[in-house]
């Protein structure tokens, strides 16, 4: 987390300003990520379906990073919003219209609302109590989805979701071509939004709250309101990710809204690196490719390796894979 905030005190005023502006300027390296994703479309056509699933998790983990990494709210319940988005998109497609963008919109609104409402409860607390409350909200919503079988399909899942061709042109097919581009494009917009958000004065004040709550209160920052807003924004993004899952799989299962999904997203986040936006783009692919490879190789034992990786990451690479890259770069700069 230290990579994100601190400006060295030796810089003079003007330099401080230009340095902090430079930190938020777009760099060529960032374009590489997107080029790589685009290249993946042609390089590994057989992995396109998995690719779209990875993009969806990237978006979900990105939304989690805003809450956990930037605002410092350690939540175990982010899957609640993912699940609300997934179910809303499915119900919209079945009962209203199967226009995909409408599904994204309703999902975003519903998840955002649930985010604000639950935020009003959850954000009054911190630490263990906050974790328990977020966990409880996931369980309550999970049980609700499970018991309202006539609406949600209960434990059988929500079936019969159809999706109209995107922009009236491309339909989601079995080989995942359209899904790859569609989810990739939504992820790009989500990233762009998050990128601007965290660099904005609002985003900086969120980091300020994480770093020193008392001081932010003292300078008159409306702490509670800001946290609530950022929680709602993040919930909205998570809801959109859930909607994408519904649309690309044309099915909603109860697993969309479990503690396990929250936990997986947290794992992906810490593997990649917390509080740096790109953690999501590194952690989610690593986790999901590992899952894909290891589960094929040994379906019983693969969680052991995930667990071991998690323990090693926390013990030796607290800032994730990207943190490791940073350290290597810094070490080389010193050596040169």
């Amino acid at each position: 987390m230290a990579t994100d905030g601190t400006v060295r005190p030796s810089l003079a005023g003007a330099e401080v300003v230009s340095a902090s502006l430079a930190r938020h300027r777009f760099r060529p390296l960032e374009g590489l990520v997107w080029l790589a994703m685009l290249a993946g479309y042609w390089l590994w056509p057989e992995y396109r379906p998995l690719g779209s699933q990875i993009f969806i998790m990237c978006l979900f983990v990105l939304s989690l990073d805003i809450v956990v990494g930037y605002a410092g709210i350690v939540t175990l319940g982010h899957a609640a919003f993912f699940g609300v988005g997934a179910y809303t998109a499915g119900l919209t497609a079945i009962h209203l219209s199967n226009e995909p963008f409408l599904g994204l919109l309703t999902a975003a609104v519903a998840a955002g609302l649930v985010g604000i409402l639950s935020g009003l409860i959850v954000l009054r607390t911190t630490g263990l109590t906050l974790m328990m409350l977020t966990l409880a909200i996931v369980f309550v919503l999970h049980e609700a989805a499970n018991k309202l079988g006539s609406v949600t399909g209960g434990s059988d899942g929500l079936q019969g979701v159809t999706v109209a061709p995107i922009l009236g042109l491309w339909s989601l097919d079995f080989f995942g071509q359209t899904a790859y581009i569609y989810t990739g494009a939504v992820l790009f917009l989500g990233w762009l939004f998050a990128r601007i958000l965290v660099g904005s004065p609002f985003g900086r004040s969120i980091v300020g709250i994480r770093e020193n709550l008392v001081r932010m209160r003292a300078i008159g920052s409306p702490v509670r309101l800001r946290l609530l807003v950022v929680y709602g924004i993040s919930a909205t993004m998570a809801g959109i990710a859930g909607a994408l899952l519904t649309q690309t799989t044309q099915f909603v299962s109860l697993s969309a809204i479990t503690f396990t999904r929250s936990g997986e997203a947290l794992i992906m986040l810490i593997l990649g690196g917390v509080g740096r936006l790109y953690g999501a783009f590194v952690g989610a692919p690593i986790y999901m490719l590992m899952q894909d490879a290891l589960a094929k190789y040994n379906p019983v034992f693969w969680t052991f390796w995930i667990g071991l990786m998690l323990v090693l990451t926390v013990m030796f690479a607290r800032n994730g894979v990207l943190g490791l890259v940073d350290s290597v770069l810094a070490w080389r700069r010193r050596a040169a």
Binding site: V68, V74, G263, V274, G307, L310, V311, M315
Partner: peptide, 14 residues
């Protein structure tokens, strides 16, 4: 807190 939570989840997985 986050590190502790994830570390112990890792132990559970293993």
């Amino acid at each position: 807190e986050l590190d502790q939570v994830l570390f112990t989840i890792g132990i559970i997985f293993m």
